[in-house]
């Protein structure tokens, strides 16, 4: 037998409602996905607008890629990246990535803010481009 069963069950329901409140309150009002801008002088000059890998790959894997690049260029002396299409690129956040993506707030920060990540790359890199 359960003593005070009614109170316990009411309490549990209230508790469940409170901790799931963020889901109920936000139902049906999706946040606007971030606007990503490719409008930079260098990208506009490109005849073929392509990144070093496909957009899907870059979107999901760029943190891992930059992590690998960091060790390869700093510690292993490998300075050239051969992409899956066979093209060669200098391994450098400042001299390769940020040459095209020189609009930090409209490109990098737009997504990082949306997904609430705060990478510390910027403490040292990208000091020469506008915030």
């Amino acid at each position: 037998m359960m003593y005070n069963g009614g109170k316990i069950i009411t309490g549990l329901i209230i508790f469940a409602l409170i901790i799931t409140a963020p889901f109920w309150l936000n139902i049906g009002q999706a946040d606007e996905p971030p606007e990503i801008s490719l409008d930079t002088p260098v990208i506009n000059q490109l005849s073929e607008k392509e990144c070093i890998e496909s957009a899907e790959f870059m979107r999901s894997q760029h943190p891992q890629l930059l992590n690998d690049w960091r060790d390869q260029v700093v510690r292993e002396g490998k300075t050239v990246y051969t992409s899956s299409s066979g093209k060669e690129y200098q391994i450098s956040l400042d001299n390769t990535c940020l040459q095209c993506h020189s609009n930090r707030s409209e490109f990098c920060d737009a997504c990082h803010a949306y997904t609430s990540v705060d990478p510390y790359c910027w403490d040292c890199h990208g000091g020469g481009i506008a915030k």
Binding site: Q61, Q64, L65, E76, G77, T82
Partner: peptide
Amino acid sequence: RIGTAADTIPGSKN
């Protein structure tokens, strides 16, 4: 595996 789509090498000008 997913992370490394391609290859890295020392540059020819190094």
